[in-house]
């Protein structure tokens, strides 16, 4: 009976503190006041402890004909957009990228001109490169 009570308590705790997940989601949108085609130079602002995501984003943008620089410092003058990102990682046997949000911002005001998000849980996980490709492709698909 003692074991049963412990099991019930454990299940209750799990239910209270967590939520299950088996989810795929991908969105991309561009503010109507933004002309995405006019953004020809971008600066990817690297998160200090990020290993490679910033480089994947820069490479993907270069493949679209954009001149890209990266760094942890504030953006240099003269760029059309600053690219920021939030990558969330999870562990399930191995580490994988659970969610990635990429935002193109106005260098002067920080206004989010365009944004994209991808969320894939463990069973349908994508590689970091595939996540970056999906998010940026969805942002450009969102351009009117």
């Amino acid at each position: 009976m003692n074991k049963t009570i412990k099991l019930l308590a454990l299940l209750g705790l799990v239910a209270t503190l967590t939520t299950g997940c088996a989810v795929n989601r991908a969105t991309g949108s561009v503010d109507p006041s933004t002309n995405l085609a006019a953004l020809k130079t971008m600066y990817v602002k690297k998160i200090p402890d990020d290993d490679n995501t910033h480089a994947l984003i820069a490479d993907k943008l270069r493949s679209k004909g954009i001149t890209v620089t990266t760094g942890v410092e504030p953006a240099p003058g003269g760029v059309d957009a600053v690219v920021t990102y939030i990558d969330k990682w999870m562990w399930d046997i191995t580490m994988y990228m659970l969610e990635l949000t990429i935002t193109f911002r106005d260098p002067k005001t920080d206004f989010p001109m365009a944004t994209g998000n991808s969320f894939h849980t463990s069973l349908t996980r994508l590689s970091p490169k595939e996540m970056v490709d999906e998010v940026i492709d969805n942002i450009y698909k969102g351009a009117k």
């Binding site: 099991l7 299940l11 939520t19 299950g20």
Partner: peptide, 17 residues
């Protein structure tokens, strides 16, 4: 029965988002 009940309780408490 207890295990099944516990599992159902867990699901009920977790609910759907």
């Amino acid at each position: 029965q207890l295990l099944t009940g516990s599992a159902l309780l867990g699901i009920a408490l977790a609910g759907c988002s």
